[in-house]
């Protein structure tokens, strides 16, 4: 699967990338919201994983952008810090499919990606 990961923390980005590559996915990494939107239009990923707090455009804006402008149905997983429950609710309102709260286990993220993959294939 082609997965786009948007996360401004380089170490977290690398960690997620590693975990997903281990699962055999193709991972496209971006470090800010604007770059994410450009890449989404070009590569049309199968799943998007995005942090909420990012430079230029937030994760919420990415969710809204995907649901509004991309004809393909792309599931979005939100990464949020503890205490951002309201933002997560807002993200679901905009059309996000799942969320993971930081600190999170890379294995948990991997399982959630697999679940979305199965759901999409069905």
């Amino acid at each position: 699967m082609k997965i786009l990961v948007a996360e401004d923390d380089p170490i977290m980005l690398k960690t997620i990338q590693l975990r997903l590559r281990k699962d055999g996915h193709e991972v496209i990494c971006v470090m800010d919201g604007n770059e994410a939107m450009k890449e989404i239009e070009v590569v049309l990923p199968d799943i998007i994983i995005t942090d909420i707090m990012m430079p230029y455009s937030s994760g919420l804006e990415i969710v809204a952008f995907v649901k509004r402008n991309i004809p393909k149905k792309i599931p979005v997983i939100i990464l949020s810090a503890m205490g951002q429950e309201n933002v997560v609710v807002e993200a679901f309102g905009l059309g996000a499919d799942d969320f993971v709260i930081k600190p999170f286990s890379p294995n948990e993220l991997s399982v959630r990606v697999k679940r979305l993959e199965l759901k999409t294939n069905n």
């Binding site: 923390d9 170490i11 977290m12 960690t15 600190p103 999170f104 286990s105 890379p106 294995n107 948990e108």
Partner: peptide, 15 residues
Amino acid sequence: TEILQVQKNISGASR
């Protein structure tokens, strides 16, 4: 510094 940074954001077996 790097270990501390990663440790803040991950949990489970990797942590």
